[in-house]
Design a protein around this nucleic acid. Structure first.
Lengths: 164, 164
DNA sequence: AATTTATGTCAGTCATATTGACATATATGC
DNA sequence: GCATATATGTCAATATGACTGACATAAATT
């Protein structure tokens, strides 16, 4: 096995490809979240708050059930985080019109500002990667990641959602 | 702003690209870790154990400091997880030869088996995504993710490491 | 009127991370 | 050889974000 990189052993190469893919995903995800995490800590928030702010911003008027379905966490877990965001006026709730039991969520002006600030750092990182890798690479990036996502979640990323 | 998808507003489209990238990364990472997480819970382990097993497997003979540098966690955090893995014979330690203070880590047979089992589920997911997206896409995937990783970590993923 | 649904809340637990302080053994520089 | 730096370990306290289980309320549905 001295010919590791010469293509004699495709099975080994495949294994190496996988390992590289795993590491790329691990490090990219970690670095991608590092800066938002730092911003959030200024507010005493964590990554969970970011996710709530993100998906409420992305789906204005979303109700609690649908938010839980996207995040795949329990209502007890969401409760504390969402409660904080509402109390500190990053998110506001209104009663559902068709169903008055629902709480429809949306970002306040303050919430929109924080969301912008958080995505800006990610936008920058993405834009840099986009520029350095080129448009074709970006399409490949999308295709591979999309295929890695379970069907259920895939619709969420790709499909034009109508919520609320 | 009725022409959202017609290309009149490149700034908006760029914004949409970013959002899609963010979501792809979020969902892909979550789904990618879901199956290993389930396997780990059989052993009473969590994702932290996976990371330790993974990087020790990838770098046999790694010492504690270098492992800490890769994981970017505190030694107190590592301690509990690594301690468990050592006590339960997934990882063994030997004294450094050049420096007897060092604990050089490697997987036991049992550890290698668990590592295999964990990566197998990820290998499968990656292989499926690879097949569906095609070889060119995989290269794009790699390029974009690589550019998203901070320089420091980039060497870790790409460079041939010699540790121990 | 009975049941289901949307949401909330109380209480306890767990995993993973943190900071700070201190301990020990070994290596290294003067 | 002594002083200092390094590699590692450990005790203690704390925070975040997740979990399960049980119970409560209001509104919608059948």
């Amino acid at each position: 096995m001295t010919d590791i990189n010469s293509g004699f052993n495709p099975l080994f190469l495949r294994e190496e490809d996988i390992r590289q893919g795993i590491e790329l995903l691990y490090f990219a995800y970690r670095d991608f979240t590092a800066e938002p995490d730092a911003i959030l800590s200024e507010y005493g928030f964590g990554r969970a708050h970011h996710r709530v702010i993100y998906f409420v911003g992305r789906n204005p008027g979303i109700n609690v059930s649908e938010l839980l379905a996207i995040l795949k966490i329990t209502k007890q877990s969401l409760s504390r985080v969402l409660g904080q965001l509402v109390r500190e006026s990053f998110i506001e709730q209104r009663e559902g019109t068709r169903d008055r039991r629902q709480r429809l969520l949306e970002l306040t002006k303050k919430g929109v500002e924080l969301e912008r600030r958080l995505s800006e750092s990610q936008r920058q990182r993405f834009a840099d990667a986009y520029r350095d890798a080129g448009a074709e690479s970006v399409q490949g990036f999308r295709d591979v990641l999309t295929n890695m996502i379970s069907k259920e979640d895939r619709d969420r990323v790709l499909g034009p959602r109508k919520i609320g």
